[in-house]
Amino acid sequence: MLGSARKGYSTMGELTAIGFKPGSSPLHRLDPRTKQLVLMALSVTTLWADVPFLVVNSMVMMVLFHSAHLHARRLFLEIRYFLFFLFFVFVVRAVSFSDQMFPVITPNEAAEALTVCWRLLLIVFMGVLLMSTTRTADIRAALIWGMKPLPFVNERMAATMVGLVVRFLPLILFQANEIGDAMRARGIERRRNPLIRLIKFTTTLFRRVFLRADELVDTMQARCYSEHRTLPELSFSRNDIIAIGVGILVLLSAC
């Protein structure tokens, strides 16, 4: 949708293809609340875990990816930007400088750097697994359920706002590209002051977006907008209890 990076204005990525993939795997059938709870617990544990836990966690991940029919090649393609970041983290962690200012990599530091990268990669994999096996509407409903006890948070308004972000993200991205193209066509790249590009681009984009916002308000009012909308029904099942049990066992292997 966004096209490749071009001179002048460029997009740093594209809307990722990692999204919900319909299926009937055990993960697909779980309640989104269970998945989010287990994911959060495993993510936090993984950050400080040792190699044995990472091995167990990686094996569980491989089984889950296989059962959800997610292919490794596509997965690595989608997270390629994050892999660059991991490489950067590895270099910064592993390379030190000798007295003569030569870069040196010791086996111990390299092993530690690899462990850090392994942990970060697993956390990203867990996020991908959740996104690929859970509908956005279900995750949204789970979040509303989770936010209910929070004071000062209107969970229904938050859900409506997230729904609008989903709707307008591709439209505004498209507009941003259009503005970039229009400015290039008018020779913005020939302006010497680099700030001019930034100011002109941002001002135009914001003006158009706020104009659209006013239209949206009128539209919502015309359709008698209300915060009370029907949400998907969530229910815990026996599979959720089993999943939480497996999650606890995996967590215990970190001790």
Binding site: M12, T16, I79, G127, L130, T134, V162
Partner: peptide, 12 residues
């Protein structure tokens, strides 16, 4: 899980 973070990623 919406891809709104840098690099087109998302997720908790």
């Amino acid at each position: 899980g919406l891809p709104v973070f840098a690099g087109g990623t998302g997720g908790i």
